[in-house]
């Protein structure tokens, strides 16, 4: 499902792309975190991935096949990365009949958007100075119970890939002296929620430049290692 903040990603990606490098911004909770006991069970909550075709006029068109591939690649890479650290990833589909779960997931969308707009995009909240204590609250325990989950991982990823037409326009306009035309890119944000307290214990935003492509296995690996940078697992 699409979220408010996820729709910001292509725009953010476009703006950081001119540097053609990968940038990340890792944030961690200032709350006390109970130490992890043994191998973790991590609930991967319905990842929200959407890949689009960025056409000449700046209109982007979602591609169902690219989305399927990108999603599958990213999930596989996440699973691999976490498995090498001895953790178990459980893919979790939201049960629309479970009102609590639905509310928690919607709450997370808002919390994610809030973190992006006040911590990443630089309009800091004086009331949060020195604190990163956003939480979904202890209501998460309902969600955790069925699978015995210790953590939940939320992921939103967007990719826009330029048509060859778009690249021609970018070159054309550059020649004529008008720069700054987006040629696509990928962006994602992820959060790790402690399912005992609901606290967001880790949050990261990552953007990659053109040329690293989650539709390809190695591109997905690059993106995932950027997204999951410094994840405390």
């Amino acid at each position: 499902m699409s979220s408010i903040a996820a729709r910001l990603i292509p725009v953010l990606a476009a703006m950081t792309l001119l540097a053609a490098c990968t940038s990340t911004a890792v944030m961690e909770t200032t709350n006390e975190v109970a130490p992890l006991e043994g191998d973790a069970v991590i609930l991967l909550v319905e990842p929200d991935v959407e890949l689009s075709f960025l056409k000449a006029a700046g209109v982007s068109e979602v591609r169902a096949d690219w989305t399927e591939t990108g999603k599958a690649n990213v999930l596989a890479e996440i699973e691999t990365l976490l498995a090498t650290r001895g953790h178990k990833l459980v893919e979790h589909e939201i049960d629309p009949e479970n009102e609590r779960e639905v509310q928690i997931v919607k709450l997370h969308e808002i919390v994610g958007a809030t973190i992006l707009s006040h911590r990443f995009m630089g309009q800091p909240l004086p009331s949060k100075r020195g604190k990163f204590d956003w939480s979904l609250g202890p209501g998460v325990r309902d969600m955790a119970e069925a699978q015995g989950a210790d953590y939940a991982l939320f992921l939103h990823a967007r990719g826009e890939y330029a048509s060859s037409g778009r690249q021609a326009v970018a070159i054309g306009l550059a020649v004529l002296g008008a720069g700054g035309v987006s040629t696509g890119g990928q962006g994602a944000y992820a959060s790790l929620v402690d399912m005992r307290t609901g606290d967001i214990i880790w949050f990261n935003v990552a953007f990659t430049g053109p040329g690293t492509d989650m539709r390809e296995q190695d591109g997905a690996e690059h993106l995932v290692s950027a997204i999951l940078k410094d994840i405390p697992l």
């Binding site: 729709r7 725009v11 703006m15 700046g58 982007s60 707009s117 630089g122 309009q123 800091p124």
Partner: peptide, 19 residues
């Protein structure tokens, strides 16, 4: 949608709202 969001982003980043 994309062009509207670009505007939003620019407003957000311009720091013109003082908290």
């Amino acid at each position: 949608r994309k062009s509207l969001l670009t505007v939003l982003l620019l407003v957000a980043m311009s720091g013109c709202v003082g908290l």
